[in-house]
Computed example of a mutant assay.
Amino acid sequence: MKRTLTILLAVITCFAVNAQIEVPQPSPAGSVYSKVGLTDVTIDYSRPKVKDRKIFGEGDEFLQPYGQIWRSGANAGSVLKLSTDVKIAGTDVKAGEYLIFTVPGKDEWKFMLYSDVSLGGNVAGYDKEKEVVSTTVKPIMLSTPVETLTYNISDISENNTSANIQLSWADVSIKVPMSVDFDAAVMASIEANTKVNPGNYVAAANYYLNAGKDLNKALEWMNMYLSVGENAKQFWHLHTKARILAALGNKKEAKATAEKSMELAKAFPNGDFGYVKRNEDLIATLK
């Protein structure tokens, strides 16, 4: 009996030692993700709060004095993850993971990417030889303060070739430009996939049209798709053909194709999906 009690007490003691109580963290974990072009962009970071403190400024009374390197987050710092090669502030950056460091200043901030993520938030161990990007940006003063540090992938361009890495905290925000190049990847995909699935000719034609590439090739691909089975009744793709013809300067055929697309759209039992108006607008430009 005594031996059983001893074992039971040992088990209880062991459980008490290993059991942990989970409580909210002062700087909770955060993550932001966006696709820019064909690139997955992720920032994992810890989010400190202002909590009535002076954050950025001149002198030791500020949490992060001007001119001193900052891990740009709390705890182990902030990690930028890139799925493809990109350019950041004009500098080539390979796919991979990088720590974000900054040096705040009144009139400009220094922004750095660091290749050794094992450094974490240890700014004292910063090795300039492992610096991948070093650039300066102008800070944006905020009229409405941001209580909790926030990263964002902002200002993604209409053609998906550029965006900004944005950091906002307290009364300041900075934006660092990033650009991506996906044309070569798209071209390789077109070459590979149109051979195994003719339906991909539509995507290829659309890409050529929107990117201003060889429009005759785009028209060839669209005609190849529309010639199969009942595909010519797909008024949404006929509209794309009309746009290609219009871009080639073939107004007469573009108008006839747009009129056929509009006719099919009006007769479609499930609605025209806005293609009657799209064709009317296109025809109006062909006079």
Score class of each variant (00 low, 15 high):
Pro104Ile: 12
Ile100Arg: 02
Ile156Arg: 10
Ala203His: 11
Met141Gln: 05
Met178Phe: 10
Gly229His: 15
Leu238Val: 06
Ala247Glu: 07
Lys266Trp: 02
Val196Ala: 01
Thr161Met: 14
Val86Phe: 08
Val86Gly: 00
Ile55Phe: 06
Gln64Met: 06
Pro198Trp: 07
Met1Trp: 15
Pro65Thr: 03
Asn231Leu: 01
Tyr275Ile: 02
Val228Ser: 03
Ser157Ile: 15
Val17Phe: 15
Ala89Ser: 12
Gln234Arg: 06
Ile165Cys: 07
Arg71Met: 12
Asn206Cys: 09
Gly125Met: 13
Gly212Ile: 13
Lys195Tyr: 03
Gly120Cys: 13
Val186Gln: 05
Ser34Phe: 11
Val79Gly: 03
Ser227Lys: 14
Gly96Met: 11
Val86Ala: 00
Glu129Gly: 08
Ser168Ala: 11
Gly121Asn: 06
Ser78Leu: 03
Val36Ala: 07
Glu259Tyr: 00
Thr4Tyr: 14
Glu230His: 14
Trp169Asn: 11
Asn152Arg: 08
Asp181His: 08
Asp52Phe: 03
His239Lys: 03
Thr39Lys: 09
Tyr225Leu: 03
Asn75Arg: 03
Val137Trp: 10
Val23Asp: 05
Ser143Val: 10
Thr6Arg: 09
Val117His: 02
Ala74Asn: 04
Lys195Asn: 07
Lys175Cys: 09
Trp236Thr: 13
Tyr208Thr: 11
Glu191Val: 08
Ala19Ile: 15
Gly120Asn: 10
Trp109Glu: 01
Lys2Ile: 15
Val117Pro: 05
Thr39Ile: 11
Val186Glu: 04
Lys54Glu: 12
Leu8Tyr: 13
Lys110Cys: 05
Trp236Tyr: 12
Glu253Thr: 01
Ala284Val: 01
Ile156Met: 05
Ser83Pro: 06
Phe268Pro: 02
Tyr201Pro: 04
Met222Ser: 00
Lys138Glu: 10
Gly67Gln: 01
Ser173Phe: 13
Lys138Asp: 07
Glu108Ile: 14
Gly212His: 07
Ala204Lys: 09
Trp70Arg: 04
Tyr33Trp: 00
Val196Arg: 01
Leu9Pro: 12
Pro177Thr: 14
Ile190Arg: 03
Gly249Leu: 12
Asp44Asn: 10
Gly120Glu: 13
Gly59Ser: 05
Pro269Asn: 07
Lys266Leu: 11
Lys241Phe: 14
Glu22Gln: 05
Lys2Ser: 09
Val50Gly: 00
Lys51Arg: 05
Ser46Phe: 13
Asn18Glu: 00
Lys195Pro: 12
Val41Lys: 01
Leu226Ala: 09
Phe268Thr: 08
Asn206His: 04
Glu131Tyr: 13
Asn193His: 10
Leu80Phe: 11
Ser46Gly: 04
Asn18Phe: 13
Ser143Asp: 06
Leu80His: 08
Tyr201Met: 12
Ala76Gly: 13
Val172Asn: 00
Ala163Cys: 14
Leu248Ser: 00
Lys266Gly: 04
Ser78Arg: 04
Thr144Leu: 01
Thr84Pro: 02
Ser78Ile: 13
Ser261Tyr: 00
Ala265Pro: 05
Asn216Thr: 04
Asn279Ala: 00
Ile7Val: 07
Asn270Trp: 03
Thr13Asn: 03
Ala254Tyr: 07
Pro24Thr: 06
Lys81Glu: 02
Ile244Ser: 01
Pro48Asp: 06
Phe182Leu: 08
Lys260Phe: 00
Ala19Met: 12
Thr135Ser: 14
Phe273Lys: 02
Asp181Tyr: 09
Leu38Asp: 12
